[in-house]
């Protein structure tokens, strides 16, 4: 009986504190702050303090919530929460430094991951759609096209990694992928996977929705698209979701391409290492592109992902298959 209670408490701890809710909220907002600060530095500005996203978040939580007349109330309010929940579930499933709070029980969690990743985007789309605004209409159209654009290379990258780790057998498990790298070296050091890693680096900013791939939320032309009608707490949730997505995507990159190769015996240290690598990848894949490039048009974005990025991923897949 007491064992059950202990298990339940441990599970609750994993979901609510580490690596769940509290941990991702803090790390996600921190990454968003680092992103803003580094971007400002790159553009020779002083920039906001690193903790600025925290201030923004709490400020928005306290603001009035307005629901437009044309909106479907329940869907409008539920959308940000659904996105948030699926992100938290994802974080619990990502083995941080080989630590899986529920054990390696999800033999095919790579696919689960892929689908959980779509839910925050769907939540944004459904929420925006339910607000009834034509700006949101344009925004969700672009969000959906962006999603179709990055999904193809993402799928190929994930299958490539699975193929490389599995060899001649079936392996769809993040835990196994992570553990494999402990003995065989980080996947990023295997040269045939470098194109796939680059492709994944391109997928991250589109998934998170940062410039130059933020066509869906283009503030200057369609007033943040799907978010145009959102105010107060729901808006804060959406901003938080974006921040958490930064961590989820970069942590996924860490697991896929570094895995246990960078893990130590200490969980706290592992978490720190993952966060540090995540921050590095954030700067590399998101901040740098943001500082250098202007926003793309939606059809150019789509073409870019289905040609250049997909080609990179496919090169890796073919190399892994043939070697």
């Amino acid at each position: 009986m007491s064992e059950t209670v202990v298990t339940m408490l441990t599970n609750a701890f994993s979901v609510l504190v580490f690596p769940g809710l509290l941990f991702v909220m803090i790390v996600g907002l921190l990454l968003a702050g680092i992103d803003r600060k580094v971007l400002a530095r790159m553009q020779k500005r002083k920039g906001p303090p690193v903790l600025q996203p925290f201030y923004d978040f709490f400020k928005l939580m306290g603001k009035e919530t307005i629901i437009p007349d044309a909106a479907n109330r329940r869907v409008f309010l539920a959308a940000p929460i659904i996105g948030f929940v699926s992100l938290v579930v994802m974080v619990v499933l990502i083995p941080i430094g080989g630590y899986t709070p529920f054990g390696i029980t999800f033999n095919a969690d790579l696919i689960v991951m892929l689908y959980l990743l779509t839910i925050p985007a769907v939540a944004l789309i459904i929420g925006g759609s339910s607000s009834g605004s034509p700006y949101a209409g344009i925004g969700i159209s672009r969000e959906m096209v962006t999603m179709m654009a990055y999904e193809l290379p993402l799928v190929i990258v994930l299958l490539t990694v699975a193929l490389k780790v599995g060899g001649g057998s079936f392996c769809f498990s993040l835990g196994e992928i992570s553990a494999w790298q402990e003995t065989n070296g980080a996947l990023i050091t295997h040269w045939e996977l470098i194109p796939a890693a680059i492709a994944f680096l391109f997928v991250i900013p589109a998934e998170v929705g940062t410039q130059p791939f933020d066509v869906a939320e283009a503030e200057t032309e369609i007033c943040e698209g799907p978010l145009v009608e959102y105010t107060g707490a729901p808006l804060a949730m959406f901003k938080l979701n974006t921040a958490i997505k930064m961590f989820v995507m970069t942590a996924l990159f860490t697991v896929l391409f570094f895995g246990n190769a960078v893990a130590t015996e200490y969980l706290a240290l592992n978490a720190l290492i993952v966060v540090a690598i995540s921050a590095g990848i954030t700067v590399l894949s998101m901040t740098l592109a943001h500082a250098v490039c202007a926003r793309l048009k939606i059809e150019h974005l789509f073409k870019f992902y289905w040609t250049v990025v997909t080609a990179l991923a496919a090169i890796s897949l073919v190399l892994v298959w043939c070697l």
Binding site: S129, S130, I140, M147
Partner: peptide, 20 residues
Amino acid sequence: LVVSVMTLASFIKVTQAVFF
């Protein structure tokens, strides 16, 4: 896997065009 995303896209279209 890709067809699955396109399915989603197409139903987002219906959702937006009919219900929202």
